[in-house]
């Protein structure tokens, strides 16, 4: 059998493709919403874990993000050290990637080296020096303490904003590999604690 482009085009099931194209598009959207999404890491806030040479070369890592979905409620089981993707609290159209440093009930002893220049929250943090993460929220920080806008700027992030967990780097080829989140021991001190669901948020 010899290879011929004309034969390939002639034999291609065009009619079937036209019929199934919308379904294929819907399948891609469904997968992106509920299963897996490929997203590019921009900025050097997660260096050296993700995009380590972004500052020097501008190379970005493409990340595989396992989505939280209604079928498996893994969002409630988010753990310290996992790298998550979430909607920026200050910008509804922007996705960020950061590491979960503390979950609800934990007390964060704020790392003083980190730049905390933005927002009212920062000033409140300066006074106390430690923050108890409220129910239903997580504390996220970038690995690169010099260049990271994170919970030190905008406060604890609602769990509802979490989109998915970063599981792997898929591009560039030299950096392909699984992303190991736990166990994580960072410089920010965390006093583990537990938070009961407040009486106000119990369902009748």
């Amino acid at each position: 059998m010899s290879f011929s482009i004309r034969r390939l085009v002639a034999d291609f099931p065009w009619r079937l493709t036209a019929i199934y194209f919308p379904f294929a598009g819907a399948a891609v959207i469904f997968a992106n919403d509920n299963i897996l999404e490929i997203q590019s890491q921009t900025g050097d806030s997660m260096s050296p874990t993700l995009a380590p040479t972004f500052h020097e070369t501008g190379s970005r890592d493409k990340l595989a993000i396992l989505h939280y979905n209604p079928f498996f409620n893994l969002r409630s089981e988010v753990k310290r050290g996992q790298i998550v993707s979430f909607w920026a609290p200050h910008d509804p159209e922007k996705l960020l990637v950061k590491r979960v440093i503390a979950t609800e009930g934990d007390t964060v002893v704020v790392d003083e080296r980190r730049d905390r220049s933005v927002g009212e929250w920062a000033r409140a943090v300066e006074g106390e020096g430690r923050v108890k993460v409220p129910f239903g929220h997580v504390w996220v920080e970038g690995d690169n303490w010099r260049k990271s806008k994170d919970s030190n700027d905008y406060g604890p992030v609602s769990k509802a904003l979490l989109v998915g967990r970063v599981v792997a780097v898929v591009w560039p080829p030299t950096r392909v590999g699984w992303v190991e989140g736990e166990p994580w021991k960072g410089r920010t001190k965390v006093i583990p604690g537990k938070e009961e669901r407040p009486a106000m948020w119990l369902n009748e």
Partner: peptide
């Protein structure tokens, strides 16, 4: 969705920020 074109006075449906799911 995501607050596009939302104005004061609109009734919006949202994912609860505290109650999970």
């Amino acid at each position: 969705r995501r607050g596009r074109d939302v104005e004061v006075g609109d009734i919006v449906s949202f994912l609860h920020p505290v109650k999970d799911g």
